[in-house]
Simulated assay, not measured.
Amino acid sequence: MAAQAPVQLVVGLGNPGPRYTETRHNAGFWFVDALARKHGGSFRPESKFAGEATRIRLDGRELWLLKPQTYMNRSGQSVKLLSAFYKVPVEAILVVHDEIDLPPGDVRLKRAGGHGGHNGLRDIMSHLGGDFLRLRIGVGHPGHKDEVVDYVLQRPSRDDEEQILHAIDRALDVMPEVAAGELERAMHKLHSK
């Protein structure tokens, strides 16, 4: 595997507005909000990027954090605007999203890949290709594919929510390695409970 570029941009996926704030589909927003809080960032609306953005310092590295405000299925627009403006290469982008194929409490880091039916990833890939990092936050599966849309747009049970927040905390702990491009090390720490 080629060396991983240090991460310059962390994109949390979700839907804007109070109706969606606590839904499973907004796990990506939950993560970047927690990352910003931990490192003293505060999101501001950035209309030129069709999103909310902030900059943080993590172990001496500057990172952009972005929450697209375009709704999930048009997330790529916002990511492309910011990454083009600041000349962030696609391989230096980490996209954080909810993952129905992982149970709540599971979190996985991976490089590149398909969209797995996730509309936010699908749209980012249509704008930038697929060579970005993904942090997949498990939210569980409703059991039948016809129920997925309603499921991800609902708030998780209290137990599931606790598990998801615990997974986010574990992922926050490996962000120094991720930001430095030490992907193997980050994966080892994150994936071995």
Rank of each mutant, 00 (worst) to 15 (best):
M1K: 11
Q4C: 10
P6I: 08
P6F: 06
Q8C: 04
Q8V: 04
G12F: 15
G14T: 02
G17L: 00
R19I: 05
T21H: 13
T21R: 15
T21Y: 11
E22F: 12
T23G: 01
H25M: 01
N26K: 01
F29M: 09
W30D: 10
W30G: 10
F31W: 10
F31I: 13
V32K: 08
D33A: 10
D33K: 12
D33I: 14
L35H: 12
H39Q: 08
H39N: 14
H39E: 04
G41C: 04
S42P: 03
F43M: 08
F43N: 05
R44N: 05
P45M: 07
T54E: 08
T54C: 15
T54F: 10
R57I: 09
R57K: 15
R57L: 14
D59T: 07
D59G: 06
R61S: 10
L63P: 01
L65I: 11
L66I: 10
Q69L: 10
T70V: 01
Y71H: 14
M72I: 01
N73C: 08
N73T: 09
N73H: 07
S75Q: 01
G76R: 03
G76H: 01
Q77M: 14
S78K: 13
S78L: 11
S78P: 14
V79G: 14
V79Y: 12
K80H: 15
K80E: 15
L81D: 04
A84V: 08
K87L: 09
K87V: 06
K87R: 15
V88D: 05
P89Y: 06
V90Y: 00
E91S: 08
E91A: 06
E91K: 03
V95S: 03
V95H: 06
V96I: 02
H97R: 12
H97W: 06
H97M: 12
D98I: 09
E99Y: 02
L102Y: 05
V107N: 03
R108S: 11
L109I: 03
G113T: 08
G116I: 07
G117M: 10
G117P: 12
N119H: 07
G120F: 00
G120K: 01
I124G: 13
I124N: 13
M125C: 08
S126L: 07
H127P: 10
L128N: 02
D131Q: 04
L133N: 02
R134D: 11
L135V: 00
G138I: 00
V139Y: 02
H141R: 08
H141P: 05
E147W: 12
V149R: 07
V149D: 12
Y151S: 04
Y151G: 05
P156K: 00
S157I: 01
R158Q: 09
D160G: 00
Q163M: 05
L165F: 04
A167G: 07
I168E: 03
R170K: 14
L172F: 02
V174I: 15
V174W: 09
V174K: 11
V174M: 11
E177R: 14
E177Y: 14
E182V: 04
L183D: 01
R185V: 12
R185Q: 15
R185E: 15
H188T: 13
L190F: 06
H191F: 00
K193N: 10
K193E: 11
